[in-house]
Amino acid sequence: MIARMVLNGRAREVEVRASQTLLEVLRDTLGIFDVKEGCDEGVCGVCTVLLDGRPASSCLVLAAGVRGRAVVTLRGLERDGGLHPLQDAFVRHGAVQCGFCTPGMLLTALAFLEREPRPDREAIRAALEGNLCRCTGYTKIVDAISAYVREANGDG
């Protein structure tokens, strides 16, 4: 069957099986490896995509059920081929170790900051509760997001 979606700004039609998740189709059919597979049960967050602007677990969405909605993966953030300033903040602040959680963290953080542009550290932590990271202990991830927030708000 055909699954329709607007993937990173481009309308796509993809041949899928009914039993395939969006995650499988993104990775195995479309070769979009910026979504990762970590648990297939909605807990870890490495498969995060934005579905009509909200974070969703692509492992828990049937591809056929996307029904033309907008799907954004990490590469959808690129600005003129360069890094998004939040990506840059992750690099500068050492928020990346193994990097497996990173794409999901970035998308979740950005969707959150859309709604809440000036969060404190505690609010940032609460917003990230569905994205596990086994390497960093989260401190530097929160550092990076806080720094980005300060810069984006012109607070130095």
């Binding site: 909605g42 967050g45 579905l51 909200r54 974070p55 969703a56 969707a111 569905g130």
Partner: peptide, 9 residues
């Protein structure tokens, strides 16, 4: 309820 992604869908 759950995490933000659970609440999306």
């Amino acid at each position: 309820i759950g995490n933000v992604r659970v609440r999306t869908l």
